[in-house]
């Protein structure tokens, strides 16, 4: 269970998924090791969100295998619940619970899923709110926070479940430019703490800093996978080059 573990913490092999007749994922295989940080990029509609949503079963794959920390995602709900307890997720639209305070957003999971007492859950939540640098907002409702603050609360909410893996689906895409940095800084902190992370993002500066592996997707396939040094300087595929030139040009 450390970085030298020979088995990957996430193992996807030959995964395919359809929405009705439309194939979103085509024979996707991906291995992620404990402590590894993977950045996924690719054009809109290429299946990036679907790929990471399959990892905590927000979407069900129809072919292939997904094994997370030794647990196969199949029809067994116990397996699904076990995997979800190990995987945190942060969404583009934050998806905070608007009727609960920031603190309650963070304590709900620990209390109802992990069975912590309110006192322990609140202590835990304050610890993570501190880590995302907004302990002073604990008593407020999400609606009164800025986008950047909301996304940091969403990160804290996930961390309160003490997951071993964090998934990020374009966490800064819905933010005003001046708030992107505060969220990326929190994610960099998290990366430095050794968290296993898969981030879908087009923040290439962030990718260069934290990623061990870059994954490029197009039309439901993983086209290219390489360390960032190689990925940015000498991408192998034409489509990767085209994509990078488009995204880095602005």
């Amino acid at each position: 269970m450390n970085e030298n573990t020979p088995n990957p913490i996430i193992e996807m092999s030959g995964v395919s998924k359809w929405f009705d007749d439309f194939q979103v994922l085509k024979d996707v295989s991906l291995q992620v090791f404990s402590g590894e940080r993977v950045v996924v990029c690719g054009p809109s509609g290429s299946g990036k969100s679907t790929l990471i949503r399959c990892i905590n079963r927000l979407e069900e794959h129809q072919e292939g295998r997904i094994v997370v920390d030794g647990i196969e995602l199949d029809q067994d709900t116990q397996h699904i619940n076990k995997v979800r307890s190990e995987v945190g997720m942060v969404f583009q639209q934050f998806n905070l619970f608007p009727h609960l305070t920031v603190l309650e957003n963070c304590t709900l999971g620990p209390m109802k899923v992990r069975g912590l007492s309110r006192k322990d859950a609140e202590a835990l939540a304050m610890e993570y709110l501190q880590r995302v640098r907004i302990p002073e907002q604990a008593a407020k409702y999400p609606g009164s926070l800025s986008g950047g603050q909301q996304q940091r609360v969403a990160i804290a909410r996930s961390l309160c479940m003490q997951p071993r893996i964090m998934l990020f689906d374009e966490p800064t895409s819905a933010l005003d430019p001046e708030m992107i940095k505060e969220v990326l800084d929190v994610m960099i902190d998290l990366a430095e703490s050794g968290m296993t992370m898969i981030c879908v993002t087009h923040e290439m500066g962030f990718a260069r800093t934290v990623a061990h592996q870059m994954v490029f997707m197009d039309e439901g396939r993983i086209i290219e996978r390489s360390p960032p040094g190689k990925f940015f300087s000498e991408p192998e595929h034409e489509r990767t080059k085209l994509f990078l030139s488009q995204i880095l040009s602005h």
Binding site: L58, N81, R84, S85, F91, N95, F97, R157, S158, M161
Partner: peptide, 19 residues
């Protein structure tokens, strides 16, 4: 998105409805 967030922190279907 509320369902998805709730599911992703591991709340059951029933608890998602309730809370």
């Amino acid at each position: 998105g509320q369902w998805e967030a709730s599911t992703s922190i591991g709340l059951s279907r029933w608890n998602t409805y309730r809370y």
